[in-house]
Design a binder for these strands. Structure first.
Lengths: 330, 330
DNA sequence: GCGGTTTGTGCAAACGATTGCACATTGATG
DNA sequence: CATCAATGTGCAATCGTTTGCACAAACCGC
């Protein structure tokens, strides 16, 4: 059983109130008493109970994070960013995985609320629709990273996925590629919708017509990339380049290309999205669209904390940048 | 402000005690009352406060997890396993990153204790020595994954790193390689020490003498792999195969090999350790030693929970297995 | 119609902190 | 020496639950 303030107070021969103030370095407590209390606390190995403190202070100094899975490297990056920003502000993270299942996202939301976290960040939410009724009773700020929900109280910070995808396509166009394929992501998420839009728009802006038979479905997994590549290689004429919904899909393309003897970028240029740490380790290193995950995480935390202080805050959108590596010929 | 049980009780016209029992489905509360209370709770959007409950029940249903970083893919795998095991048992995770700094590990430990988590799992601990005094006052079970600490109250679950490394070397020997290099990991951690021992022992068991000039230092990063490969290629005779402390290092070797035009496995066989999800996506796919991370995570949680119930538990060690892929010729 | 069980509810004391207020000392001031 | 401010400490309420115990009403068997 942990030692409580009462134990410390008894040992120091003072009241609980005094012990509390002594440890909090209250100015009205004599140095002498403070010393005695601190001494007692040390000897007993006293560690204050954050749960008791949270109850009275009505704040837990904890942020809830809902993510699909820790093993999703993109999510991991933003979790990390959130973690350092939170840590810097004196907050810690209660992490829960939804495994992409909408019902579990809602359950997670409720559980975090029960635990009275001071703010909630949801990364890449899927089941937005079902949120309505849960959200309506929440008294805690929520921000979505790369997602949106119609609820007025929910803020979002996201990458400009449309712009990012367009950027990639323009880059390919610039490099002389014209027959450009696309491998899509989970259609429930808005990032996937925006990316395909960006792809289509950039093509149209260049006077090209996006052909449905080079737009492949996918869920953002490596396996989707492999499968799409196999289809792609059976097409006549073959695509010269492919933009992938995310890096993971691109990794699948690269892996399957190696297995099939397709040379990248000579036979096919490949471009990813997310700039995962691994993407500079592939053979060839992957050209990809980067989101400023660092800033996004920081911003998410900052929005949460500002909302908590009663400030009115706006959604924020970050532009993407292109990271040139060797999977596209220049 | 969240609505409290008092609000619900008032609305239903009963005492707080009755409201509490009604929601807990206590047998001595009439169906009628239960219905009224539930109704009131629903209408007000009542969500019980886990912090208040934790205070009286003296349990938080939360497990603390200390890891180097969420972006470390190995750690992420075991965090995930811990997460699902915890979830299944009705627990959630307070995640904190130490960034490999011993002092932060200790701080994290203290913070988790303050928050009265029901158990703590530490993944790949580094600064074991400094733990002694913190640990001595802890009244919460702690288990280390892939690490050990002399403290009697701390259990550990780990992979048999020595056996794993030996397994890899024997596999290479079997395949006809004899000049086998090794790229090491962080020497503070015990996993790195055991792996190099396994490497050395397997060589000696085959009557070979491990040569210091093919044992390269490293910290388990991709950059270490790249650097080591460059050194290696300048050696005469060159090593025919290399065992890496972990997959990340192996990825670096592979990436640099691609850049230098070194063919794997024809010019050099490469073998990793950890079997990260990405290791089947490299070119060529990486042969590697796998730890049963799933079981390890589950076991960690189970040890924690059993210790909490007062059971006496033992350390557990899992054997590693070899995952054959294409970075070693057969 | 009387003891005795069953059923349903509330009072009040926890859990472990924080904090407003009252009170007792001490010291300074006129 | 009376007055008042400053200093140091404790009492008790509070945060939002749970739960042991007491108690009243209803029901039972005889």
């Amino acid at each position: 059983m942990p030692v409580s303030l009462k134990d410390v107070a008894r040992k120091a021969g003072v009241s609980v109130a005094t012990a509390s103030r002594a440890l909090a370095d209250h100015p009205r407590i004599s140095e002498n008493t403070k010393a005695r209390v601190r001494q007692a606390a040390r000897e007993l190995g006293y560690t204050p109970s954050a749960v008791a403190r949270s109850l009275v202070k009505r704040e837990t100094h904890t942020l809830g994070v809902i993510t699909t899975s820790v093993t999703d490297p993109y999510a991991a990056q933003v979790v990390k960013a959130v973690e350092v920003a939170a840590e810097a502000a004196g907050y810690h993270l209660l992490l829960v995985a939804s495994h992409g299942v909408p019902s579990r996202e809602v359950k997670a939301l409720r559980m975090l609320y029960e635990r009275r976290v001071d703010g909630i960040v949801i990364i890449s939410a899927r089941g937005m629709d079902a949120y309505e009724d849960v959200l309506s009773h929440l008294t805690v700020p929520v921000v979505l990273v790369n997602g949106r929900v119609p609820h007025p109280a929910v803020r979002s910070v996201s990458a400009n996925n449309r712009q990012g995808a367009s950027l990639a396509v323009e880059y390919l166009l610039d490099a002389g590629y014209t027959r450009i394929a696309y491998i899509g992501g989970p259609t429930q998420g808005q990032s996937a919708r925006h990316r395909v839009q960006g792809y289509v728009q950039a093509l149209q802006a260049a006077g090209l017509v996006p052909s449905p038979d080079v737009i492949f479905p996918g869920q953002g997994t490596a396996e989707d990339g492999r499968r799409a590549l196999r289809h792609m290689m059976s097409l006549r004429p073959k695509p010269e380049a492919v933009l992938c919904y995310n890096d993971l899909t691109a990794f699948g393309v690269l892996a399957e290309a190696w297995a099939m003897g397709v040379r990248v970028p000579d036979d096919l240029a490949v471009i990813g999205f997310d700039n995962l740490p691994f993407s500079e380790l592939t053979a060839p290193p992957l050209t990809t669209v980067a989101q400023p995950t660092e800033e996004m995480g920081q911003t998410a935390v900052s929005l949460l904390l500002r909302q908590r202080r009663g400030e009115e805050v706006q959604d924020v959108v970050f532009d993407c940048t292109l990271v040139e590596r060797a999977s596209v010929r220049r």
